[in-house]
Amino acid sequence: MSNQVLINIGYLLVLLGLGYFFGRRAEAKHYKDIQRREQLYLALPTVSSEQPIGDISVQNCVLVRGSVVISVDYFKRMLAALRAFFGGEVQAYETLLDRARREAVLRMKESCPGAAQIINLRMETASIHRGANSIGSVEVVAYGTALFNSDSDSTSDGSANAEPIAVSSHPSRSGPTGD
């Protein structure tokens, strides 16, 4: 009887340990990767407004999107469950959603090499249900309209740093972000 209890507790602790170590490692690695790629795509302006920044002559426009399904580890899920008892900020899920959103935006950017700008960025979040225990994994879709400049070739070439035009030189039209 007490043996059974011990086994159960041991099982739980192993799961927690695995979740803690692998989850932490995976998160740190993912954040590092995200930061590196964000630096790479800094030259591709992405805005949530319908108007492009600066004056660009648009030759082509394409609807682009990127999506990711990401799951939280066992340890953090436990932490969040505890949090739900006391109330307050659930940091475990904050980082999960942050990672998912940034990853989705990056995938969207990666899907359109040669674009000059991405406008009207929209995000869509859905939680993937797995039976009774609801959250745990989320899906994030980021989508927008990629504008291709007339002098940037819109096909293949695949390079991230294809020198999109310098648009930040028009402070007058940079809208809500520039004050």
Binding site: L18, G19, S67, V69, S71, D73, I128, E139
Partner: peptide, 16 residues
């Protein structure tokens, strides 16, 4: 596979 991934956390590639 997703059930296993749920222990370790990370991207569920199959679902994506």
């Amino acid at each position: 596979m997703a059930g296993i991934k749920n222990i370790f956390g990370g991207e569920l590639r199959g679902y994506t």
